[in-house]
Design a protein around this nucleic acid. Structure first.
Lengths: 334, 334
DNA sequence: ACACTTTTCTGCAACGATGTATCCAGATGC
DNA sequence: GCATCTGGATACATCGTTGCAGAAAAGTGT
């Protein structure tokens, strides 16, 4: 059916292996021979069989991306960029959605997904460092976005603490004193929510503003979670003059609920988010948020992973990359 | 390194082929033998090598999804659902972004991407039917979302015309008479923009409202395009009392621009969109839009493609599925 | 002309699974 | 008692590549 290397070899009057050598840029081939082979390839329309190549070589030129939910705007934008960067280096990205469930994250690390890829970009939400470290096999793994402080892993992340602190400081500078935080559990110390909450507390401390646990509302990270979290807060009668959503979707959901209930943004309550998804710019009012250097994260994480896969990067300790951030001050919290 | 079938065979004291037979549910195996094999598999932690299986069987259990840009919210939500549906049937989805460029769409149809997958879900934006029909190989292809009227292809789409007509009728019923349309070129007849524009014109005709070409603004389909399109319209001095964005991102960008410029939504100008992405519900004001049956589209397109791949669906003519739609009337155009 | 490198090309085995053909043992039929 | 059948297992070839080792050809030095 399909044209194989054998057909090309026959057409070019050389051995099968010579065709392989041409395709793999083997050094010692006479230009004339090479040309014969290339001509035969062009004439027959030969395409290398990637599956066979992959079986033989053990490489698939695919990178795995494990995240909770591709429909979340931050992940969608990140995935899109990661694919573009990977593509430029000749790799494809295979996405696996974990729904932030431990079982799914485990199966992504251990199951067939791992086999199909040369390395993994992993956003752990349910698993802890030790569990991840126990994974079978030894394919490269780059942690993404989450801050699992562990020298065993490569990590590309953002300045969660610093950025949250800067944003909180901005809200404080705007005269806000009762800043509600949506999306973090109090006790939660690892992962983005905990880190961002830490940044928030540091900013409060620096400004000598009291920390009030009543302002901390645990919730999911989607729009509907933000809406119901802020709704519950309003219902509870807790007074607040700003809302810091630990991601943009959350913040936008919260802003929607505030406006629905007649709370003016930013006059009554300022709203800030985190991620700077495209949607934030076009919200009404436009959402003040943290741009966490997604471009940089995409480029460096894919770059690092491919370097690991190809053996270019060899350091024993995990490489640790932290992208810079930028505050985007917009109408929702000027 | 990895455990192979051979190791299992040795451990179980049977032949390699018997292990294969157990894994492939071959009928005639003594329960005792089967158990021995299963025990050995469990003990050694054997996992079938998907690449080898794929080389031998010619199937990869991967479906390709070609779309313009995964970061566009509609596509992100669709891709997420498609993956979930495919996963339930034991397939993975490999995404390829075309950026709506002809070259990329062609390479998705002809290049290595085709090889890696058992079938394609294809959203053609640049290619026409004949070009697609010319593709090499004969792997199943299901057209997605776009309405390429052609019996050669399977197609899962939405009621573009009917839905646009219903939405326009709704705006007319609300007393709007100067409804601007963003995202369509006048002459464009194929594809979603053209079809939705047709629905718009039909609704105008049914209500005996004159069609004014000045109200039709061609533009891209992203938020920034919507913002600049409506900005240009305002600047041009054309009078309008409603905006129909041919997708939600566009409509939301437009709404943002209107509000920025002090135009009241919906009092001065009503805004409607198309797609019902999650963001629409939480916009301020919430966006009136068309829910195009994405759930149904995801389920039926993946179902159809897998049926083709597995040979369950065998009709010679392209199967044609049209999902139902629903108007979501919200505050932006009550 | 001979030994010795270096360049150029080739054959064979292997990657890890599955399809086809076959073989063996026991049951069945007459 | 011998041919026939069927359930249960196996051997071998095969999918389309690449790694390894080595052969053939070409160049080098004396």
């Amino acid at each position: 059916m399909a044209v194989t290397m054998n057909d090309v070899a026959r057409a070019a009057g050389v051995s099968l292996k010579t065709v392989s050598n041409v395709l793999n840029d083997y050094e010692f081939i006479r230009p004339a021979t090479k040309q014969k082979v290339l001509d035969a390839i062009a004439e027959l329309g030969y395409e290398a069989n990637l599956t066979a190549r992959s079986l033989r070589s053990g490489k698939s030129r695919m990178l795995g991306l494990v995240l909770s939910d591709l429909s979340a705007p931050y992940y969608a934008e990140l995935a899109s960029r990661l694919m573009t960067v990977a593509s430029a280096r000749g790799y494809r990205v295979l996405v696996e959605q974990s729904a932030a469930l431990e079982a799914n994250e485990l199966s992504a690390l251990h199951g067939p997904f791992r086999q199909l890829t040369d390395g993994l970009l992993f956003t752990p939400l349910a698993l802890d460092a030790d569990t991840v470290a126990d994974r079978r096999g030894s394919k490269p793994l780059v942690m993404l976005g989450e801050h699992i402080e562990d020298p065993r892993f490569d990590l590309v992340t953002m300045k969660n603490i610093g950025a949250a602190q800067a944003m909180t400081a901005h809200l404080l500078a705007g005269g806000r004193r009762r800043i509600a935080v949506l999306g973090a559990a109090m006790e939660d110390d690892a992962g983005s929510p905990g880190l961002r909450l830490t940044g928030y507390r540091e900013a409060l401390a620096a400004a000598a503003v009291d920390f009030d646990p009543a302002l901390i509302v645990p919730s999911g990270w989607r729009r509907d979670a933000g809406a119901s979290a802020v709704g519950a807060l309003l219902d509870s009668g807790v007074v607040f003059d700003a809302v810091f959503g630990l991601n943009d979707a959350l913040a936008l959901g919260a802003m929607h609920e505030l406006l629905i209930r007649g709370v003016k943004v930013p006059q009554d309550v300022a709203v800030a988010g985190f991620d700077d998804i495209d949607e934030a710019r076009f919200a009404s009012p436009a959402l003040t948020t943290v741009a966490p250097g997604m471009e940089e994260i995409a480029e460096r994480s894919v770059g690092l992973l491919i370097d690991r896969v190809e053996g270019t990067e060899t350091s024993d300790e995990g490489v640790h990359i932290e992208a810079g951030f930028e505050l985007k001050i917009r109408a929702s919290a000027p």
